[in-house]
């Protein structure tokens, strides 16, 4: 009981901290990083519901991310629909897509489902490139002005700074976490895990396999779509590779796989590792850091080499990281943390 209260207290303190961050932090860059973190948490956790709990490894979640992002942006661009309305159009579109995909792809098991899910995302990407009248094709859609959000006459926010996005992102991340928590502690979660562990056994215990797989897919797809819409509005630009590319799908999976599948905190840990890492690699922060602590001199051959190449190598380093995690932490960071904790407990006993 004491432990639970401690956990709740820590949770409340962290939450309160997150709520007041924009009051004290003015740096747009810091806020930007936090927003990316929230986005990553909600992406990873959305995937977790289908991939981690129900064991259906979709490598095509870009389809839902992209359809959400595109629907909201297209409506804003061509019909001047406000994004907080467009988001729901995106959700509706994604539910339709998910049900079509689910009813076809869930006939397949294991690697065949994975392949089908990739194919679906590719179909979406190619459609976005070729349906130029709707999507602007490869040029993408750029919307820089978001109408102010009003309740009655009062302007709540005009979206001119990053602060409103910070709060929307935080809300989105908390919402996905809450839904994952609810799933885990409900009949749904038990049924998802039963399907993951043994589909035939689950079937014999009265679980309608395709119904529950589709429920998992729809929950996961809707949350991914919300993340996609948020991304589109925040960045102000979508084009096929950035929201529908295969690497988007892979990125979404990796957050969860590296963090720990089928756990509430796995995607959070995964995001805490991957978002700063990918940012540090991209912005050459690592090279600068190495120079600063004196490990490498800026003018030496190694220093120049790193400066030149490290930023471009972030995909490679990502890949190496995945291999390391899978080799040494098959249950992800979260599984590793749990193992350490239980080992300490055993040693103490």
């Amino acid at each position: 009981m004491n432990k639970r209260m401690l956990k709740a207290a820590i949770g409340l303190i962290v939450l309160a901290g997150l709520l007041v961050v924009p009051r004290f932090v003015e740096s747009p860059y810091a806020l930007h990083m936090m927003i990316l973190l929230f986005l990553s948490v909600s992406q990873g956790q959305s995937w977790n519901i289908l991939g981690g709990y129900a064991g259906q490894y979709s490598v095509g979640h870009a389809a839902y991310f992209g359809v959400g992002a595109y629907t909201t942006m297209m409506l804003m661009y061509s019909k001047q629909v406000a994004p907080w309305v467009g988001v729901w159009a995106g959700v509706a579109a994604v539910i339709a897509v998910a049900l079509v995909i689910g009813s076809i792809c869930f006939r397949l098991r294991g690697p065949y489902f994975v392949l089908a899910s990739i194919a679906v995302a590719e179909i979406m990407r190619l459609s976005a490139i070729n349906l130029t009248t709707l999507t602007n094709g490869a040029e993408g859609i750029l919307v820089t002005e978001i109408p102010a959000f009003k309740i009655g006459e009062r302007v709540v926010t005009d979206f001119l700074t990053k602060v409103p996005f910070y709060y929307i992102g935080l809300f989105l991340a908390l919402l996905t976490l809450a839904i994952a928590y609810w799933v885990q502690h409900s009949k749904l979660g038990y049924y998802f895990q039963a399907i993951r562990e043994d589909q035939d056994a689950a079937h014999s215990l009265g679980i309608h396999i395709s119904v529950y797989k589709n429920i998992g897919l729809v929950i996961s797809a809707v949350l991914t779509s919300l993340a996609g819409s948020f991304y589109g509005i925040y960045v102000g630009f979508v084009d096929p590779p950035t929201v529908l590319g295969l690497d988007v799908s892979v990125q979404i999976m990796l957050i969860c796989i590296i963090g720990g599948m089928g756990t509430i905190w796995g995607p959070v840990l995964g995001s805490l590792l991957l978002v700063p890492l990918s940012e540090a690699l991209r912005s050459n922060m690592i090279t600068e850091g190495l120079v600063k602590i004196g490990l490498v001199s800026a003018d030496s051959k190694v220093g120049l080499f790193l400066k030149e190449n490290l930023a471009h190598a972030h995909v490679l380093i990502y890949g190496i990281l995945v291999v390391l995690v899978i080799l040494f932490m098959p249950d992800g960071l979260m599984g590793f943390v749990k193992k350490l904790a239980s080992r300490r407990k055993r040693e103490a006993a």
């Binding site: 895990q193 562990e197 043994d198 056994a201 079937h203 014999s204 215990l205 679980i207 309608h208 396999i209």
Partner: peptide, 23 residues
């Protein structure tokens, strides 16, 4: 289907046991 059969009150066990291992 097996799930419907189970709901109607008929259930089987498996010769090769099928525990939900991680639960």
């Amino acid at each position: 289907q097996p799930d419907k059969v189970c709901k109607l009150g008929m259930v089987r066990t498996w010769q090769k046991v099928r525990p939900l291992a991680k639960l």
